[in-house]
């Protein structure tokens, strides 16, 4: 994170960070690229991002292009992954599904990351009753099994992909909040923060220039791992009919729409599931690799 060294009461600190920053990234990349599993994960994730981005150009058929004569066909050279009960090309729908699943996963995590970081910083930095209040709130939210809480939220807001995204964002807030709070609590005791405080630096400056940049590592690691769970949760909600609605090609929704043809055409269920699993596996491997590279102390 480049830090501008403006006229700052403790100007030597940002300059020092600026000099070190590129080497941190280099160092992280150096240890990340040695981890073959992590590289494989990054490869899988990049592949799905690319497929999702290019879905409109590379998908052989349209998202909802129905061919009645070609219903429930097994995989072939014409339809690589077969067709579903409407005669739609499963491969094309999985490509478009990549776009949906990755978008939901990414934006849900960005949402919970922003809200969680904000609350975690406030709880950790200001402490006292704010900390008690926010921490208790996290405890209570974490007392619910997460998918159950997501279901409750969707039951209130009504089933749709957008509401599923909101629900997933909300249930992951405490995860980020707790990590950031713990990090801020330990950073607060660091000498350079004490120094910044003693030279009269304002709270907002300390938070933006010192606390936040130094809390980034655990946030990035958690974010990557959280995208994996968010994609799984979105698929689960879609599967239950509480997320994406037909005919959206969301992977979980595709699975539940094809359930009745399990015996007749197992490929209609098989491939969307494989797509979910590969994407989630990719993010998990990448997240584990990032954790080892960025923050070895977080390793279990």
């Amino acid at each position: 994170m480049p830090v501008p060294a403006k006229k700052d009461p403790a100007s030597h600190t940002p300059v020092a960070i600026e000099e070190e920053t590129p080497s941190i990234i280099k160092e992280t990349w150096h240890s990340f690229k040695k981890n073959r599993l992590a590289l494989a994960g990054a490869g899988i994730v990049s592949l799905f991002i690319l497929l999702g981005l290019l879905a409109f150009f590379i998908a052989p058929e349209g998202i909802n292009e129905q061919k009645n004569a070609d219903r429930l066909l097994p995989p072939s050279s014409e339809y690589w992954l077969g067709t579903d009960d409407f005669g739609r090309d499963i491969f094309s729908r999985i490509l478009h599904g990549a776009r949906l699943s990755l978008t939901v996963g990414f934006f849900a995590v960005v949402g919970s990351c922003i809200a969680g970081t904000f609350l975690g910083v406030i709880a950790g930095y200001y402490g006292r009753w704010l900390d008690t209040l926010i921490s208790r709130m996290f405890d209570i939210l974490l007392a619910f099994p997460s998918i159950l809480l997501a279901i409750a939220i969707v039951a209130i807001l009504g089933p749709s992909l957008q509401n599923a995204l909101i629900a997933i964002a909300i249930i992951n807030v405490p995860t980020f909040g707790r990590i950031v709070r713990a990090k801020v609590l330990s950073l607060k005791e660091e000498e350079y923060i004490q120094a910044a405080l003693s030279v009269g630096m304002k709270d907002r400056r300390i938070l933006t220039y010192h606390i936040l940049p130094n809390s980034l590592a655990p946030i990035i690691v958690q974010g990557t791992l959280c995208i994996a769970t968010a994609i799984l949760e979105a698929a689960a909600l879609g599967f239950l009919g509480l997320g994406a609605q037909a005919p959206q090609p969301e992977w979980g929704r595709m699975l539940s729409d094809s359930r009745d043809y399990l015996q007749q055409a197992p490929w209609t269920v098989f491939f969307p599931g494989i797509a979910i699993m590969l994407t989630v596996l990719g993010f998990n491997l990448m997240g584990d690799g990032l954790r080892d590279a960025l923050d070895p102390k977080m390793k279990e």
Binding site: F239, G273, I276, L278
Partner: peptide
Amino acid sequence: ALIGVSMPVFWLGLMEQW
């Protein structure tokens, strides 16, 4: 184990059924 963590429960259930 890594694959197990990444697997959607509902998909595994359907595959078992099949």
